Computed example of a mutant assay.
Amino acid sequence: MPAERLAGRHVLITGASSGIGESLARLADRHGAAVTVAARRADRLEALVAEINRAGGKAFAVSMDVSDEASVVAGFAAAQAALGPIHTVYANAGVGLPGLAKEAPIADFDAMFSVNVRGAYLTAREGARAMAASGVAAATQGRIVMIASIGAMTQLPGLVGYCASKAAVVSMAKSLAREWAREGINVNAVCPGYLETEMNSGWFSSAGGQKQIGGFPRRRLMPSDALDATLMLLGSDESAAITGGVFTVDDGQSL
């Protein structure tokens, strides 16, 4: 992978207090970006920012609830005031609340759509507005990457609402890519398979989780760096001709 693919860019990442978002923040820093990390757990963000800044990087934290419009608008404004125009947005915040359809509370369904769909929409919208206002879009440097899931295209047991919400994210990414195609903003979706995160480690260490892993073609979770190359490509200038794409990175898990 070429070094410093994001040099000179200001990257904003939602859901950055753990899992893919936290790893992505460190990766973006290593590739030369100034990084704004956004999430509800501000204490964890501050620790991440301190780590990046101590090592010579440039990072800033904003407390953001992606399901709340005012919070998203304020977060983007604070990020730009701190680190300048935003070039790349990773709409990564998401929740998965498992449960069989006849038994799961409707509140869980609503929560997943509130964060996974409404939150992704607000994040992409505010990113596009910021890019248009700053001139980043006019310079054809705008990049928005929406993190979906293999659940967008395959049915994961006990995750009806989650799969439906991620299918909506994929459709949204395509629609926004078309809407903004002539504005210098590229929008793409990435559909990761399972890798071990704080959110799922308990499940995958259980007997049921081990059985699920045994059913994957390669009988493993994805390596921790499996998404790195795709995420860096789509967030960089190298993806100038890539918009409206849906990229499945799952180690063959959905086969």
Rank of each mutant, 00 (worst) to 15 (best):
G245N: 07
G202P: 12
G209P: 06
C163S: 05
R41Y: 13
I106V: 08
A39F: 02
L48R: 00
Q141N: 15
V117N: 06
G252S: 07
V115P: 09
M146L: 13
V89E: 04
S71L: 05
E179Q: 11
L234P: 05
A78I: 10
Q141H: 14
Y162E: 02
S67L: 08
S224L: 07
G184Q: 04
L159A: 12
N188C: 13
L255F: 08
S239G: 11
L45R: 00
A189T: 08
L83E: 13
E4S: 15
L156W: 02
A111W: 06
R143P: 00
W203F: 13
A50H: 15
A3V: 10
L231W: 03
S254L: 04
M64S: 00
F109C: 10
R5G: 07
W180G: 06
S71I: 03
S23E: 13
S205H: 10
G32F: 01
D250P: 04
L227H: 00
A152Y: 02
P223E: 06
A173R: 00
A25P: 04
H31W: 03
A226V: 12
T36G: 09
K102E: 15
V190G: 03
E179K: 09
L159K: 03
E4W: 03
T154Q: 08
S206F: 11
S205I: 11
S114E: 11
T36S: 15
E196C: 03
T14K: 02
R219F: 06
G142A: 05
A50Q: 15
A70M: 08
Q155P: 07
L24D: 04
V11E: 07
A3T: 14
L6F: 05
S17T: 11
R218Q: 10
A148F: 00
L233N: 01
V246I: 09
A241S: 14
G161M: 01
D250W: 02
D29A: 11
E238H: 07
A132F: 11
G244E: 02
G158C: 08
F109D: 13
P85Y: 10
S114K: 11
S254M: 01
M232C: 14
G56L: 14
H31I: 10
S67E: 12
G21K: 00
V35E: 03
A81K: 12
